[in-house]
Design a protein around this nucleic acid. Structure first.
Lengths: 195, 195, 195, 195
DNA sequence: GATGAATGAGAATTCATTCAT
DNA sequence: CATGAATGAATTCTCATTCAT
């Protein structure tokens, strides 16, 4: 039985998200997470190698299902432009639907040390590859400009989406993030310049 | 005499950048910074209130002169599009010219706690306002699309630039960042879509 | 289970008394106390909030049982004069029996900061109230002079006892403190003047 | 020229009393005393060997003139009982007249380390010897009880006076200390017991 | 599998004192 | 005589991890 299918594994992951969101990364002690999950401190170490492993697992689990959802959503779409639109929209929807998770991914987990962030980036790569695919397909199908550097296009797309979400979180999620999907999509596809 | 004009202040700031870049944020002990700066530990506290004050000052000093440089560069330019191009180029040039600083601003200082990051954001705001001005002027002069949401455009521009630099730093600065100024500018202005 | 009933709590308290007596208040580092108590430094903090809490607890524990002992001893005595005599005698006996404790209460704990001394005074108040009761009862029963100011009488009694013990401690406990109980009692009751 | 006759010596002593009274013993840094005295930090060390030397000098200077005053006052008195009364009265008057000094001698200087307190005790000895002389003379002249242990009588007298002043200081000097001279004198001479 | 008491390494900061000017 | 910038030693407390029960 995989650890991720055991109930306590999920309990601890979920507790970690809440504890980090409520207390901040540096105040998210293992004992706090254990208490919130309703298990003993030592029990954590039956499911996770160490604290870092909890944090990575948080990202893997949450980001993983997030990525899967998006992969499914865009699977049946043929137009790369529409795929990009759906990706932006689903990205915003997912984080708008889980405020705790949004705080954790946009603010708290970024305070982790260099190594942890490199490992988080590995998880992210799967997401970035989806964007790469959309861009590549877009070029092939003629919907995207032919002279695009795929990597740079992906960085702009991800950077813009990410910055938009982070600004929204730092503004305490006061406005409607999902409503920004369309204008962000317009910006990404048409750019700033008047044509 | 302002503390920032005293030679030891600069010594310590510069030592801090190197120490943080080489050891990482969490391994940048005050004693290490002092040693590198060639002063006693206690001397640090004649120029800085506490360790956090060193870190904020690093950002203020470096980012401050960075912003000033860009303000001067674009001051004499009349075309907002050209201003945007110069901003991207100077941004890349500045960080490419100081590898230590690039590591510190893109990776290390982001692991600071929430309060420190909020104070860092205050410094950043000045930079974001420059972008806002360019966008606003661009719309007025007809070079930028009329229907742009200024805040979103700024988020895309900053997000794309920042993501590009961060990716470059995480790839250990293996390729030529400055060479990306033009394609990034093209992306930001024309977008991904074929017209 | 109250912390004061746990064996390690007592271990640490007792270690603190010895370490403070032997090294002095300002040289009684937490690590020294831990080592003497045979526990890890961190274990201290499972039983005490901080270092100050150890010191207050030392006083509360030791002074507490000291006060209880005296309360019990005088409970069955009907004559206030005899109560006073027993109080002086027990006070001297208690401190003569524990040289370390005598050094700690008479010399070392008095170097604590104002806040700690105020909290120590709270414990002392219970002792001072016992003296007050003896004086009050003595006046009512006609054994003490009718015109006594209770508070002043208490201050003289406590001041004389305390000064006697402190002088004894500062003279390195070279003479027999308990033997002074009778002459001190005589002084307190009859005064200096020939009648 | 003796250092104690130089104006800066007195300036620094007086500044020390005020700084200690207002900030407490542990917050009375040399730099604070220097600032208050209107001299540079380094100047302190032209007049005092080290910080401890300042504190002892404070006690010597202030207690010295205090003792001299009392010696003069009782010099012309022939009755030992009256001498005792005057001593108590002058003791209370002196401290009631200088609230800062009262706080320093009764509370703050007692937080000093063991060595400093031993040296302070040397200064006190001169005062204690005055009391001894009064008691001895009192016994010889038949005004004091013949069976007195001089040392113990002195400890009671000093202990009672000191405790009375300390209680008054800890109660923030809310009531009239000098008015207590008479009842304290009565207590010391006649004791608590009804005759 | 589950517990939770015990462990112990690691770092920012203060302030008395010096000494070149 | 006077200055004040510079020095550097010294200590509490936290919290991830272990392991006996």
């Amino acid at each position: 039985m995989l650890r991720r299918d055991k109930p306590k594994f999920k309990q601890i992951i979920d507790a970690a998200v809440v504890v980090i969101a409520e207390n901040g990364y540096h105040q998210a002690q293992v004992s706090k997470i254990a208490k919130r999950a309703g298990v003993a401190d030592g029990t954590i170490y039956l499911y996770f190698k160490n604290k870092e492993d909890i944090l990575i697992s948080v990202f893997e689990e949450k980001m993983g299902s997030f990525i899967e959802k998006i992969e499914q959503e865009i699977a049946g779409i043929s137009s790369p432009l529409e795929k990009l639109y759906v990706l932006v929209k689903k990205h915003f929807e997912s984080l708008a639907a889980d405020h705790h998770l949004a705080v954790v991914t946009q603010l708290e987990l970024r305070q982790s040390n260099k190594e942890l962030r490199h490992r988080i980036n590995d998880v992210l790569k799967r997401y970035l590859r989806i964007i790469d695919e959309i861009v590549k397909e877009g070029i092939e199908k003629g919907e995207f400009r032919r002279d695009l550097d795929i990597r740079l296009a992906r960085q702009m797309i991800f950077g813009a989406i990410d910055e938009t979400v982070t600004t929204w979180v730092m503004n305490e999620q006061k406005y409607d993030l999902v409503a920004l999907a369309n204008p962000v999509y317009e910006l990404l596809t048409k750019g700033c310049a008047s044509s």
